[in-house]
Design a protein around this nucleic acid. Structure first.
Length: 480
RNA sequence: GGCGCAUUCGUCUAGAGGCCCAGGACAUCUCCCUUUCAAGGAGAAGAUCAGGGGUUCGAAUCCCCUAUGCGCUACCA
Protein backbone atom coordinates (compact mmCIF):
# COMPACT_ATOMS: atom_id res chain seq x y z
CA UNK A 1 0.00 0.00 0.00
CA UNK A 2 1.28 3.42 -0.93
CA UNK A 3 0.89 6.38 1.31
CA UNK A 4 -0.37 8.48 -1.53
CA UNK A 5 -3.56 10.41 -0.92
CA UNK A 6 -6.31 8.91 -3.00
CA UNK A 7 -9.91 10.07 -2.94
CA UNK A 8 -12.94 9.17 -4.95
CA UNK A 9 -16.49 9.87 -5.75
CA UNK A 10 -18.76 6.94 -6.33
CA UNK A 11 -21.98 8.11 -7.92
CA UNK A 12 -24.73 5.78 -9.04
CA UNK A 13 -25.75 6.19 -12.64
CA UNK A 14 -29.43 6.60 -11.93
CA UNK A 15 -30.30 9.83 -13.67
CA UNK A 16 -29.05 13.30 -14.43
CA UNK A 17 -25.68 14.25 -12.95
CA UNK A 18 -26.48 15.63 -9.53
CA UNK A 19 -25.20 18.84 -7.96
CA UNK A 20 -24.30 16.75 -4.95
CA UNK A 21 -21.94 14.76 -7.14
CA UNK A 22 -20.30 17.96 -8.28
CA UNK A 23 -20.10 19.09 -4.68
CA UNK A 24 -18.39 15.93 -3.53
CA UNK A 25 -16.14 15.88 -6.58
CA UNK A 26 -14.95 19.38 -5.76
CA UNK A 27 -13.87 18.58 -2.23
CA UNK A 28 -12.45 15.17 -3.07
CA UNK A 29 -10.44 16.46 -5.97
CA UNK A 30 -9.21 19.58 -4.21
CA UNK A 31 -8.17 17.58 -1.18
CA UNK A 32 -6.34 14.91 -3.16
CA UNK A 33 -4.62 17.33 -5.49
CA UNK A 34 -3.57 19.65 -2.73
CA UNK A 35 -1.62 16.74 -1.32
CA UNK A 36 -0.30 15.57 -4.64
CA UNK A 37 -2.71 12.67 -4.72
CA UNK A 38 -5.22 11.23 -7.12
CA UNK A 39 -8.93 11.72 -7.54
CA UNK A 40 -10.88 8.74 -8.80
CA UNK A 41 -14.30 8.26 -10.34
CA UNK A 42 -15.95 4.95 -9.67
CA UNK A 43 -19.37 4.05 -10.92
CA UNK A 44 -21.62 2.27 -8.46
CA UNK A 45 -24.05 0.60 -10.77
CA UNK A 46 -25.01 -2.41 -8.71
CA UNK A 47 -28.60 -1.30 -8.54
CA UNK A 48 -29.71 -2.63 -11.87
CA UNK A 49 -33.28 -1.53 -11.31
CA UNK A 50 -32.46 2.14 -11.18
CA UNK A 51 -29.63 1.92 -13.67
CA UNK A 52 -29.69 4.52 -16.41
CA UNK A 53 -27.73 3.86 -19.56
CA UNK A 54 -26.65 7.36 -20.50
CA UNK A 55 -25.92 8.42 -16.97
CA UNK A 56 -22.24 7.46 -16.81
CA UNK A 57 -21.40 9.59 -19.82
CA UNK A 58 -23.43 12.46 -18.43
CA UNK A 59 -21.64 12.32 -15.13
CA UNK A 60 -18.26 12.44 -16.82
CA UNK A 61 -19.37 15.26 -19.07
CA UNK A 62 -20.60 17.23 -16.10
CA UNK A 63 -17.33 16.73 -14.24
CA UNK A 64 -15.37 17.86 -17.27
CA UNK A 65 -17.58 20.89 -17.57
CA UNK A 66 -16.89 21.82 -13.97
CA UNK A 67 -13.21 21.32 -14.56
CA UNK A 68 -13.20 18.48 -12.05
CA UNK A 69 -12.04 15.72 -14.35
CA UNK A 70 -10.93 12.63 -12.43
CA UNK A 71 -7.43 11.20 -12.67
CA UNK A 72 -8.71 7.67 -12.90
CA UNK A 73 -12.05 6.29 -13.89
CA UNK A 74 -14.04 4.59 -16.60
CA UNK A 75 -12.90 5.75 -20.00
CA UNK A 76 -9.95 7.47 -18.39
CA UNK A 77 -7.98 4.51 -17.23
CA UNK A 78 -5.74 3.91 -14.25
CA UNK A 79 -4.01 1.04 -12.55
CA UNK A 80 -6.87 0.16 -10.25
CA UNK A 81 -9.64 -0.62 -12.70
CA UNK A 82 -12.12 -1.58 -13.73
CA UNK A 83 -13.87 1.46 -12.31
CA UNK A 84 -17.37 0.20 -12.85
CA UNK A 85 -18.72 -2.06 -10.16
CA UNK A 86 -20.71 -4.42 -12.33
CA UNK A 87 -17.40 -5.29 -13.96
CA UNK A 88 -16.00 -6.31 -10.62
CA UNK A 89 -18.81 -8.56 -9.42
CA UNK A 90 -16.61 -11.60 -9.00
CA UNK A 91 -14.48 -9.70 -6.54
CA UNK A 92 -17.40 -8.88 -4.31
CA UNK A 93 -18.85 -12.34 -4.48
CA UNK A 94 -15.50 -13.81 -3.59
CA UNK A 95 -15.19 -11.57 -0.58
CA UNK A 96 -18.71 -12.25 0.56
CA UNK A 97 -17.97 -15.97 0.44
CA UNK A 98 -14.76 -15.36 2.29
CA UNK A 99 -16.72 -13.67 5.02
CA UNK A 100 -19.00 -16.70 5.27
CA UNK A 101 -16.00 -18.98 5.44
CA UNK A 102 -14.57 -16.90 8.26
CA UNK A 103 -17.84 -16.94 10.15
CA UNK A 104 -18.13 -13.18 9.77
CA UNK A 105 -21.05 -13.50 7.45
CA UNK A 106 -23.77 -15.99 6.70
CA UNK A 107 -26.23 -17.04 4.05
CA UNK A 108 -29.81 -16.00 4.51
CA UNK A 109 -32.62 -17.74 2.66
CA UNK A 110 -35.43 -15.61 3.99
CA UNK A 111 -37.82 -14.42 1.35
CA UNK A 112 -38.62 -10.79 0.80
CA UNK A 113 -42.14 -11.49 1.97
CA UNK A 114 -41.00 -12.97 5.26
CA UNK A 115 -38.67 -10.03 5.80
CA UNK A 116 -41.44 -7.53 5.14
CA UNK A 117 -43.72 -9.39 7.48
CA UNK A 118 -41.06 -9.49 10.18
CA UNK A 119 -40.43 -5.79 9.84
CA UNK A 120 -44.10 -5.01 10.05
CA UNK A 121 -44.43 -6.97 13.27
CA UNK A 122 -41.40 -5.36 14.78
CA UNK A 123 -42.76 -1.96 13.96
CA UNK A 124 -46.11 -2.87 15.48
CA UNK A 125 -44.27 -3.79 18.64
CA UNK A 126 -42.42 -0.47 18.38
CA UNK A 127 -39.14 -2.27 18.05
CA UNK A 128 -36.41 -1.07 15.77
CA UNK A 129 -36.51 -3.16 12.59
CA UNK A 130 -33.78 -5.73 12.75
CA UNK A 131 -33.03 -8.99 11.05
CA UNK A 132 -34.06 -11.67 13.53
CA UNK A 133 -31.13 -14.06 12.94
CA UNK A 134 -33.37 -16.87 11.69
CA UNK A 135 -30.84 -18.02 9.13
CA UNK A 136 -27.93 -17.50 11.46
CA UNK A 137 -29.33 -20.40 13.44
CA UNK A 138 -29.51 -22.71 10.44
CA UNK A 139 -27.43 -25.84 10.84
CA UNK A 140 -24.79 -26.58 8.21
CA UNK A 141 -27.00 -29.44 7.03
CA UNK A 142 -29.95 -27.12 6.52
CA UNK A 143 -27.82 -24.67 4.67
CA UNK A 144 -26.48 -27.47 2.49
CA UNK A 145 -29.96 -28.68 1.74
CA UNK A 146 -31.16 -25.21 0.81
CA UNK A 147 -28.18 -24.75 -1.44
CA UNK A 148 -28.76 -28.12 -3.08
CA UNK A 149 -32.37 -27.16 -3.71
CA UNK A 150 -31.13 -24.04 -5.41
CA UNK A 151 -32.91 -21.74 -3.02
CA UNK A 152 -31.95 -18.13 -3.61
CA UNK A 153 -30.00 -16.54 -0.81
CA UNK A 154 -28.29 -13.37 0.24
CA UNK A 155 -25.17 -13.00 2.34
CA UNK A 156 -25.38 -10.95 5.49
CA UNK A 157 -22.71 -9.52 7.68
CA UNK A 158 -22.48 -10.91 11.20
CA UNK A 159 -22.48 -7.97 13.58
CA UNK A 160 -20.94 -8.67 16.98
CA UNK A 161 -23.60 -8.77 19.70
CA UNK A 162 -21.50 -6.82 22.13
CA UNK A 163 -19.26 -3.82 22.06
CA UNK A 164 -19.26 -0.73 19.97
CA UNK A 165 -17.79 0.43 16.70
CA UNK A 166 -16.39 3.87 16.33
CA UNK A 167 -14.38 5.94 13.93
CA UNK A 168 -12.77 9.33 13.93
CA UNK A 169 -14.42 11.62 11.46
CA UNK A 170 -12.06 14.27 10.11
CA UNK A 171 -14.83 16.84 10.20
CA UNK A 172 -16.85 15.77 13.23
CA UNK A 173 -14.51 13.92 15.51
CA UNK A 174 -15.23 10.65 17.28
CA UNK A 175 -18.48 8.94 16.30
CA UNK A 176 -19.53 5.80 18.10
CA UNK A 177 -22.27 3.22 17.58
CA UNK A 178 -23.28 0.41 19.90
CA UNK A 179 -23.07 -2.80 17.94
CA UNK A 180 -26.46 -3.97 19.17
CA UNK A 181 -28.19 -1.17 17.26
CA UNK A 182 -26.56 -2.33 14.06
CA UNK A 183 -28.33 -4.73 11.74
CA UNK A 184 -26.99 -7.86 10.06
CA UNK A 185 -27.14 -5.99 6.81
CA UNK A 186 -27.33 -7.71 3.47
CA UNK A 187 -23.99 -7.59 1.67
CA UNK A 188 -24.63 -9.71 -1.37
CA UNK A 189 -28.00 -9.70 -3.05
CA UNK A 190 -29.63 -12.85 -4.37
CA UNK A 191 -28.72 -11.74 -7.89
CA UNK A 192 -25.11 -12.15 -6.86
CA UNK A 193 -24.41 -8.43 -6.97
CA UNK A 194 -23.17 -6.63 -3.91
CA UNK A 195 -24.98 -4.01 -1.97
CA UNK A 196 -23.27 -0.65 -1.52
CA UNK A 197 -21.77 -1.55 1.85
CA UNK A 198 -19.78 -4.48 0.53
CA UNK A 199 -18.80 -2.97 -2.77
CA UNK A 200 -17.67 0.29 -1.29
CA UNK A 201 -15.39 -1.37 1.22
CA UNK A 202 -13.90 -3.85 -1.21
CA UNK A 203 -13.35 -1.20 -3.85
CA UNK A 204 -11.99 1.44 -1.54
CA UNK A 205 -9.57 -1.10 -0.20
CA UNK A 206 -8.33 -2.40 -3.53
CA UNK A 207 -8.29 1.05 -5.07
CA UNK A 208 -6.22 2.13 -2.09
CA UNK A 209 -8.51 5.01 -1.23
CA UNK A 210 -6.93 6.84 1.66
CA UNK A 211 -9.71 9.31 2.44
CA UNK A 212 -13.39 8.70 2.07
CA UNK A 213 -14.96 12.14 1.73
CA UNK A 214 -18.67 11.69 1.27
CA UNK A 215 -22.06 13.01 2.36
CA UNK A 216 -23.33 13.03 5.91
CA UNK A 217 -26.05 10.59 4.91
CA UNK A 218 -23.43 7.85 5.16
CA UNK A 219 -22.52 8.35 8.78
CA UNK A 220 -25.04 5.79 9.94
CA UNK A 221 -23.65 3.06 7.74
CA UNK A 222 -20.01 3.80 8.40
CA UNK A 223 -19.82 1.40 11.37
CA UNK A 224 -20.86 -1.43 9.03
CA UNK A 225 -18.01 -0.44 6.78
CA UNK A 226 -15.56 -0.22 9.65
CA UNK A 227 -16.63 -3.66 10.83
CA UNK A 228 -16.11 -5.00 7.34
CA UNK A 229 -12.57 -3.62 7.28
CA UNK A 230 -12.01 -5.31 10.60
CA UNK A 231 -13.46 -8.60 9.40
CA UNK A 232 -11.20 -8.58 6.39
CA UNK A 233 -8.23 -7.49 8.43
CA UNK A 234 -7.80 -4.32 6.41
CA UNK A 235 -6.79 -0.85 7.49
CA UNK A 236 -9.78 1.45 7.06
CA UNK A 237 -9.39 4.78 5.27
CA UNK A 238 -9.91 8.09 6.99
CA UNK A 239 -13.50 9.27 6.90
CA UNK A 240 -14.82 12.79 6.43
CA UNK A 241 -18.55 13.33 6.23
CA UNK A 242 -19.54 16.51 4.47
CA UNK A 243 -22.72 18.34 5.42
CA UNK A 244 -25.73 17.71 3.21
CA UNK A 245 -26.91 20.50 0.96
CA UNK A 246 -30.50 21.36 1.80
CA UNK A 247 -33.66 22.65 0.21
CA UNK A 248 -35.08 25.86 1.61
CA UNK A 249 -37.10 23.78 4.09
CA UNK A 250 -33.86 22.17 5.27
CA UNK A 251 -34.60 18.74 3.91
CA UNK A 252 -31.90 17.04 1.88
CA UNK A 253 -31.60 18.81 -1.48
CA UNK A 254 -34.00 17.16 -3.87
CA UNK A 255 -35.30 17.28 -7.39
CA UNK A 256 -38.76 18.23 -6.23
CA UNK A 257 -37.68 21.40 -4.50
CA UNK A 258 -34.56 22.43 -6.38
CA UNK A 259 -32.86 22.01 -9.68
CA UNK A 260 -30.45 19.23 -8.85
CA UNK A 261 -29.23 18.46 -12.34
CA UNK A 262 -25.87 19.89 -13.29
CA UNK A 263 -27.15 19.84 -16.85
CA UNK A 264 -29.77 22.37 -15.90
CA UNK A 265 -27.22 24.78 -14.47
CA UNK A 266 -25.14 24.43 -17.57
CA UNK A 267 -28.16 25.05 -19.79
CA UNK A 268 -29.08 28.12 -17.81
CA UNK A 269 -25.65 29.50 -18.48
CA UNK A 270 -24.08 29.27 -15.09
CA UNK A 271 -20.34 29.30 -15.55
CA UNK A 272 -18.44 26.29 -14.28
CA UNK A 273 -16.31 28.77 -12.33
CA UNK A 274 -19.41 30.22 -10.70
CA UNK A 275 -20.76 26.81 -9.91
CA UNK A 276 -17.52 25.60 -8.37
CA UNK A 277 -17.13 28.82 -6.42
CA UNK A 278 -20.64 28.57 -5.06
CA UNK A 279 -20.35 24.88 -4.20
CA UNK A 280 -17.09 25.54 -2.37
CA UNK A 281 -18.94 28.08 -0.25
CA UNK A 282 -21.39 25.43 0.88
CA UNK A 283 -20.00 24.41 4.21
CA UNK A 284 -16.56 25.77 3.63
CA UNK A 285 -14.76 29.08 3.51
CA UNK A 286 -11.46 30.58 2.53
CA UNK A 287 -9.16 31.34 5.44
CA UNK A 288 -9.01 34.98 4.36
CA UNK A 289 -12.75 35.26 3.98
CA UNK A 290 -12.62 35.94 0.26
CA UNK A 291 -15.81 34.72 -1.36
CA UNK A 292 -15.03 35.03 -5.03
CA UNK A 293 -12.34 32.64 -6.13
CA UNK A 294 -11.29 29.97 -8.59
CA UNK A 295 -10.89 26.22 -8.29
CA UNK A 296 -7.12 26.65 -7.98
CA UNK A 297 -7.67 28.71 -4.87
CA UNK A 298 -9.90 26.03 -3.39
CA UNK A 299 -7.27 23.43 -4.07
CA UNK A 300 -4.52 25.55 -2.56
CA UNK A 301 -6.49 26.26 0.58
CA UNK A 302 -8.40 23.02 0.99
CA UNK A 303 -8.54 21.94 4.58
CA UNK A 304 -11.20 19.57 5.81
CA UNK A 305 -10.92 21.19 9.21
CA UNK A 306 -12.61 24.22 7.73
CA UNK A 307 -15.68 22.29 6.66
CA UNK A 308 -18.84 23.23 8.52
CA UNK A 309 -20.93 20.60 10.27
CA UNK A 310 -24.40 21.95 9.59
CA UNK A 311 -26.22 21.57 6.29
CA UNK A 312 -26.20 24.64 4.07
CA UNK A 313 -29.27 25.65 2.12
CA UNK A 314 -28.69 25.71 -1.61
CA UNK A 315 -29.50 29.29 -2.52
CA UNK A 316 -29.99 30.03 -6.18
CA UNK A 317 -29.91 33.76 -5.52
CA UNK A 318 -26.40 33.63 -4.13
CA UNK A 319 -25.28 31.30 -6.91
CA UNK A 320 -26.59 33.83 -9.41
CA UNK A 321 -24.78 36.69 -7.70
CA UNK A 322 -21.51 34.80 -7.69
CA UNK A 323 -21.99 33.74 -11.26
CA UNK A 324 -22.47 37.36 -12.26
CA UNK A 325 -19.18 38.26 -10.65
CA UNK A 326 -17.43 35.54 -12.62
CA UNK A 327 -19.03 36.70 -15.84
CA UNK A 328 -17.72 40.20 -15.19
CA UNK A 329 -14.22 38.82 -14.68
CA UNK A 330 -14.27 37.32 -18.18
CA UNK A 331 -12.61 39.15 -21.05
CA UNK A 332 -14.94 40.21 -23.86
CA UNK A 333 -13.44 37.57 -26.12
CA UNK A 334 -13.84 34.85 -23.56
CA UNK A 335 -17.42 35.85 -22.86
CA UNK A 336 -18.17 35.92 -26.56
CA UNK A 337 -16.84 32.41 -27.04
CA UNK A 338 -18.76 31.05 -24.11
CA UNK A 339 -21.95 32.66 -25.32
CA UNK A 340 -21.90 30.80 -28.62
CA UNK A 341 -23.70 27.64 -27.43
CA UNK A 342 -26.48 29.76 -25.97
CA UNK A 343 -27.33 31.62 -29.14
CA UNK A 344 -29.90 30.70 -31.76
CA UNK A 345 -28.81 29.37 -35.14
CA UNK A 346 -27.93 31.93 -37.74
CA UNK A 347 -27.64 34.87 -35.43
CA UNK A 348 -25.45 37.78 -36.54
CA UNK A 349 -22.21 36.94 -34.76
CA UNK A 350 -20.56 40.24 -35.58
CA UNK A 351 -23.31 41.99 -33.80
CA UNK A 352 -23.03 39.60 -30.85
CA UNK A 353 -19.42 40.62 -30.58
CA UNK A 354 -20.43 44.28 -30.51
CA UNK A 355 -23.09 43.71 -27.89
CA UNK A 356 -20.93 41.69 -25.50
CA UNK A 357 -19.09 44.62 -23.88
CA UNK A 358 -22.24 46.60 -23.25
CA UNK A 359 -24.20 43.71 -21.77
CA UNK A 360 -21.49 42.13 -19.64
CA UNK A 361 -22.32 44.03 -16.46
CA UNK A 362 -25.94 43.10 -16.83
CA UNK A 363 -25.60 39.38 -17.37
CA UNK A 364 -25.95 36.94 -14.53
CA UNK A 365 -26.24 33.82 -16.69
CA UNK A 366 -25.14 33.16 -20.25
CA UNK A 367 -28.63 31.91 -21.02
CA UNK A 368 -29.95 35.35 -20.24
CA UNK A 369 -28.19 36.95 -23.16
CA UNK A 370 -30.93 36.77 -25.77
CA UNK A 371 -33.72 37.93 -23.53
CA UNK A 372 -31.65 40.96 -22.60
CA UNK A 373 -30.50 41.81 -26.10
CA UNK A 374 -33.15 40.54 -28.51
CA UNK A 375 -33.77 44.01 -29.95
CA UNK A 376 -30.25 44.10 -31.33
CA UNK A 377 -31.07 41.17 -33.54
CA UNK A 378 -34.48 42.11 -34.80
CA UNK A 379 -37.14 44.75 -34.38
CA UNK A 380 -38.21 45.42 -30.81
CA UNK A 381 -40.95 43.12 -29.66
CA UNK A 382 -44.32 44.82 -29.68
CA UNK A 383 -44.49 47.37 -26.92
CA UNK A 384 -47.22 49.61 -25.65
CA UNK A 385 -47.18 53.11 -27.14
CA UNK A 386 -47.71 54.55 -23.67
CA UNK A 387 -44.13 53.58 -22.84
CA UNK A 388 -43.05 56.29 -25.25
CA UNK A 389 -44.90 58.94 -23.31
CA UNK A 390 -43.15 60.33 -20.24
CA UNK A 391 -45.16 60.72 -17.09
CA UNK A 392 -47.04 63.99 -16.98
CA UNK A 393 -46.65 64.38 -20.74
CA UNK A 394 -49.09 63.83 -23.56
CA UNK A 395 -48.81 61.64 -26.57
CA UNK A 396 -48.60 64.72 -28.74
CA UNK A 397 -45.71 66.09 -26.74
CA UNK A 398 -43.92 62.78 -26.96
CA UNK A 399 -44.41 62.68 -30.68
CA UNK A 400 -43.09 66.18 -31.02
CA UNK A 401 -40.02 65.30 -29.00
CA UNK A 402 -39.41 62.16 -30.98
CA UNK A 403 -39.63 64.08 -34.22
CA UNK A 404 -37.01 66.47 -32.99
CA UNK A 405 -34.85 63.54 -31.94
CA UNK A 406 -35.27 62.04 -35.36
CA UNK A 407 -34.16 65.24 -37.02
CA UNK A 408 -31.10 65.35 -34.80
CA UNK A 409 -30.17 61.75 -35.55
CA UNK A 410 -30.72 62.33 -39.22
CA UNK A 411 -28.44 65.33 -39.20
CA UNK A 412 -25.55 63.67 -37.42
CA UNK A 413 -23.01 62.26 -39.84
CA UNK A 414 -21.73 58.78 -39.26
CA UNK A 415 -19.71 57.64 -37.52
CA UNK A 416 -21.59 59.12 -34.60
CA UNK A 417 -19.73 60.51 -31.70
CA UNK A 418 -20.97 60.46 -28.18
CA UNK A 419 -20.37 64.18 -27.79
CA UNK A 420 -22.36 65.43 -30.76
CA UNK A 421 -25.16 63.06 -30.01
CA UNK A 422 -25.45 63.88 -26.35
CA UNK A 423 -25.15 67.62 -26.81
CA UNK A 424 -27.95 67.49 -29.34
CA UNK A 425 -30.20 65.40 -27.11
CA UNK A 426 -29.73 67.69 -24.16
CA UNK A 427 -30.45 70.69 -26.33
CA UNK A 428 -33.77 69.13 -27.31
CA UNK A 429 -34.62 68.59 -23.67
CA UNK A 430 -33.85 72.15 -22.88
CA UNK A 431 -35.81 73.46 -25.80
CA UNK A 432 -38.80 71.41 -24.70
CA UNK A 433 -38.29 72.30 -21.09
CA UNK A 434 -38.21 68.68 -19.95
CA UNK A 435 -35.70 66.59 -18.14
CA UNK A 436 -32.96 65.15 -20.29
CA UNK A 437 -33.80 61.73 -18.91
CA UNK A 438 -37.26 61.88 -20.45
CA UNK A 439 -35.84 62.57 -23.87
CA UNK A 440 -33.39 59.74 -23.55
CA UNK A 441 -36.19 57.47 -22.43
CA UNK A 442 -38.34 58.17 -25.45
CA UNK A 443 -35.51 57.22 -27.73
CA UNK A 444 -34.70 54.19 -25.60
CA UNK A 445 -38.20 52.85 -25.88
CA UNK A 446 -38.43 53.68 -29.56
CA UNK A 447 -35.29 51.74 -30.38
CA UNK A 448 -35.38 48.90 -27.87
CA UNK A 449 -39.04 48.57 -27.00
CA UNK A 450 -38.18 48.58 -23.33
CA UNK A 451 -37.51 50.97 -20.49
CA UNK A 452 -34.43 49.19 -19.21
CA UNK A 453 -31.62 48.67 -21.63
CA UNK A 454 -27.88 48.90 -22.05
CA UNK A 455 -26.53 52.45 -22.41
CA UNK A 456 -28.42 54.20 -25.18
CA UNK A 457 -25.65 55.68 -27.20
CA UNK A 458 -23.61 52.50 -27.28
CA UNK A 459 -26.74 50.65 -28.31
CA UNK A 460 -27.48 53.04 -31.17
CA UNK A 461 -23.93 52.74 -32.30
CA UNK A 462 -24.43 49.03 -32.63
CA UNK A 463 -27.74 49.43 -34.42
CA UNK A 464 -26.40 51.99 -36.88
CA UNK A 465 -28.11 55.02 -38.32
CA UNK A 466 -30.40 53.28 -40.77
CA UNK A 467 -31.85 50.84 -38.31
CA UNK A 468 -32.17 53.48 -35.64
CA UNK A 469 -34.09 55.82 -37.90
CA UNK A 470 -36.34 53.01 -39.02
CA UNK A 471 -37.27 52.20 -35.45
CA UNK A 472 -37.87 55.84 -34.63
CA UNK A 473 -40.24 56.03 -37.60
CA UNK A 474 -42.08 52.97 -36.39
CA UNK A 475 -42.42 54.54 -32.98
CA UNK A 476 -43.68 57.76 -34.55
CA UNK A 477 -46.35 55.70 -36.20
CA UNK A 478 -47.48 54.40 -32.83
CA UNK A 479 -48.03 57.89 -31.47
CA UNK A 480 -51.11 59.91 -32.23
C1' G B 1 -39.91 4.74 17.65
C1' G B 2 -34.39 3.60 17.69
C1' C B 3 -29.62 5.32 16.46
C1' G B 4 -26.64 9.19 14.64
C1' C B 5 -25.44 14.21 13.17
C1' A B 6 -26.42 19.12 13.84
C1' U B 7 -28.15 24.25 15.95
C1' U B 8 -24.15 32.14 15.10
C1' C B 9 -28.14 37.90 11.14
C1' G B 10 -33.69 35.76 6.13
C1' U B 11 -29.47 32.81 3.56
C1' C B 12 -23.95 31.30 3.16
C1' U B 13 -20.51 31.93 6.85
C1' A B 14 -16.06 34.13 10.36
C1' G B 15 -15.26 32.78 15.19
C1' A B 16 -10.98 27.07 18.08
C1' G B 17 -12.08 31.03 26.62
C1' G B 18 -10.87 37.33 27.03
C1' C B 19 -9.28 40.99 20.42
C1' C B 20 -17.03 39.71 19.91
C1' C B 21 -22.70 44.09 23.67
C1' A B 22 -20.18 39.01 17.42
C1' G B 23 -17.01 40.32 11.56
C1' G B 24 -17.83 39.48 6.11
C1' A B 25 -20.86 38.01 1.80
C1' C B 26 -25.82 37.37 -0.67
C1' A B 27 -30.64 39.34 -0.25
C1' U B 28 -33.27 44.05 1.63
C1' C B 29 -33.22 49.47 2.24
C1' U B 30 -30.72 54.45 1.65
C1' C B 31 -27.24 57.51 -0.65
C1' C B 32 -23.35 58.48 -4.45
C1' C B 33 -22.22 57.75 -9.62
C1' U B 34 -25.71 58.03 -13.78
C1' U B 35 -29.67 58.89 -20.06
C1' U B 36 -32.82 53.73 -18.02
C1' C B 37 -31.33 49.06 -16.05
C1' A B 38 -27.13 47.18 -14.27
C1' A B 39 -22.15 47.33 -12.53
C1' G B 40 -19.20 50.01 -9.00
C1' G B 41 -18.65 52.92 -4.37
C1' A B 42 -20.49 54.50 0.59
C1' G B 43 -23.92 53.49 4.40
C1' A B 44 -28.28 51.39 7.18
C1' A B 45 -31.02 47.66 9.10
C1' G B 46 -30.57 42.64 10.48
C1' A B 47 -28.05 37.33 15.41
C1' U B 48 -30.49 38.22 23.48
C1' C B 49 -24.61 33.15 19.23
C1' A B 50 -31.79 27.42 19.89
C1' G B 51 -33.27 27.29 25.42
C1' G B 52 -31.74 25.97 30.35
C1' G B 53 -28.11 24.53 33.66
C1' G B 54 -23.02 24.07 34.91
C1' U B 55 -17.18 24.81 34.60
C1' U B 56 -14.34 29.53 34.75
C1' C B 57 -12.25 35.77 37.24
C1' G B 58 -14.31 35.48 32.13
C1' A B 59 -18.06 31.21 27.19
C1' A B 60 -20.68 31.88 20.73
C1' U B 61 -16.35 29.04 21.98
C1' C B 62 -15.67 23.55 27.29
C1' C B 63 -19.43 19.93 29.88
C1' C B 64 -24.60 18.30 30.82
C1' C B 65 -29.86 18.44 29.93
C1' U B 66 -34.00 19.92 26.92
C1' A B 67 -36.06 21.49 22.36
C1' U B 68 -35.95 21.64 17.32
C1' G B 69 -34.15 20.22 12.48
C1' C B 70 -31.94 16.74 9.45
C1' G B 71 -30.04 11.82 8.14
C1' C B 72 -30.20 6.53 8.46
C1' U B 73 -33.37 2.67 9.82
C1' A B 74 -34.53 -1.41 1.68
C1' C B 75 -32.02 -7.84 -1.66
C1' C B 76 -31.23 1.88 -3.18
C1' A B 77 -27.09 4.44 -3.17
Amino acid sequence: MTDQIRTRIAPSPTGDPHVGTGYMALFNRAFAHKHGGKFILRIEDTDQVRYNESSVGEIMKALDWLGLTPDEGPGIGGAYGPYVQTQRSDLYKEHAEQLVAMGKGYRCFCTKERLDQMRKEQEARKEPPHYDHTCLRLSPEEVGRNLAEGKPYVIRIRIPDEGATSFNDLIRGEIKFENRVLDDTILLKSDGLPVYHLAVVVDDHYMEISHVIRGEEWISSTPIHVLLYQHFGWVPPKFAHMPLMRNADRSKVSKRKNNTSLKWYREQGFLPEGMVNFLALMGWSMPDGNEVFAYEDVEREMDLGRVTTSGPIFDLVKLTAINGKHIRMLSDDDLYNRLVPYLPEGIDMDRVRQVVPIIKDRLTRLGEFMELTDFFFGPPSDYDASLLVPKKATSVQAKDALQKIRALLESLPEPWTHEAWEVGMRAIAEELGVRAGDVFMILRVATSGRTASPPLFESLEVLGKGETLGRVDAALGKLK
